[in-house]
Nucleic acid binder design. Structure first.
Lengths: 193, 193
DNA sequence: CCCATTCTTGACTATTCATTCCAGAAAGAG
DNA sequence: CTCTTTCTGGAATGAATAGTCAAGAATGGG
């Protein structure tokens, strides 16, 4: 009964996420979204609701896509230290390539919106808790496998790694100097020794 | 010759800074600014130029006021470790009090604007370099006074402290949990041992 | 074929935005 | 007082904004 949707919902949402990620909530206009999503304005409203609802769905999407990458990386067997090094160096590498300097969508959301939008606050808060847990499980595994004997308080260190990751990503938006970023990574990971 | 200005320029600029600091660039309307600055709209344009110019001046103002506090704190004689602990714990304390969750104006500027406004990028970049230098000088002093023997690469550690500070401030906007923030501080400062 | 559904298009509304203009009041200098 | 400057308030401008509406074309199920 009736015509099918011509566009792929997930695809359009992904495109919306890219717009909000690189421009932020306020600076992204519906015009920008319609153009970049490649769908009709009416379809946008019919499918995703209003701009704010679309933003929240974009945040969820980001968490699924980008968050999953991190979680999977942290769960891969092998040296936890090496994995963490790859994770942090990967952030540096991607930051230096990305000429848009988008940073972390979750971090941006915290900075721009979490203070005055409780739906955003809930999402960013729970995302950060999830990241902390992923770090925590990796640290526990590293301890069990005898690799991280120096880590006394894995819960505290997992929180530290969360915060450090955000700090590094922010710094990478302010400077292009690879040496500075690698210095940060070097000292950050030294707490694991 | 002529009537004097009725309002204090610095005072008005300070008020403008508060608005941009708590709401960001895009979400702060001229209406908000006029209301909170307590001056006339025309006076705003006559005195500060347009919204963008006012924003840049607010950034400069923030650097003078808030930056100076940090720089002075770092230059005070006495234990560098203790000073750094006070600095980081002060950030936690202020973040937990501030019900507006404003974070760091410079960090917010990086996140919201540095990618597409080169004047903002220049200011945030130079501010970060200044902060790095302030940390660096403090670390050098600590080494000279024999307190920080464990710090091998003070330049790298100063960069790390910069990044960590921003990470902590961001995390403090996402969570109210004092224990989490104190964990971050604890591990961060452990690199000085 | 017919009907229901959905896509597409473009126009439309209503609000908000930054910015400018204007006319008059206030106030200091000579 | 007089001139000049600045403050004040409100109105006006024009662009951009988010969101809605309506009419028609496309498409699939029955």
């Amino acid at each position: 009964m009736g015509r099918h949707k011509e566009f792929d919902r997930d695809d359009a949402l992904h495109k919306a996420m890219e717009v909000f990620w690189s421009r932020g909530y306020e600076a992204a206009s519906i015009e920008d979204l319609v153009r970049h999503m490649g769908i009709n304005r009416q379809s946008l409203y019919d499918t995703f609701g209003d701009k704010h609802a679309l933003y929240l769905q974009s945040l969820d999407r980001y968490r699924e896509v980008e968050g999953r990458k991190v979680f999977e990386q942290l769960e891969r067997p092998g040296s936890v230290k090496k994995t963490l090094r790859q994770l942090f160096e990967g952030v540096v590498e991607r930051a230096l390539c990305d000429e848009q300097r988008r940073g972390c969508f979750m971090g941006n959301a915290i900075s721009e919106l979490a203070g005055r939008c409780k739906e955003t606050a809930a999402r960013t808060c729970s995302n950060m808790a999830a990241a902390e847990d992923a770090f925590y499980r990796a640290l526990l595994r590293g301890k069990k496998e005898g690799e991280l004997k120096g880590v006394r308080d894995p819960r505290a260190v997992s929180r530290f790694l969360c915060s450090s990751l955000q700090g590094l990503i922010l710094m990478a938006r302010a400077t292009q100097d690879r040496k500075k970023l690698e210095d940060v990574v070097k000292v950050t990971l030294s707490v694991l020794d």
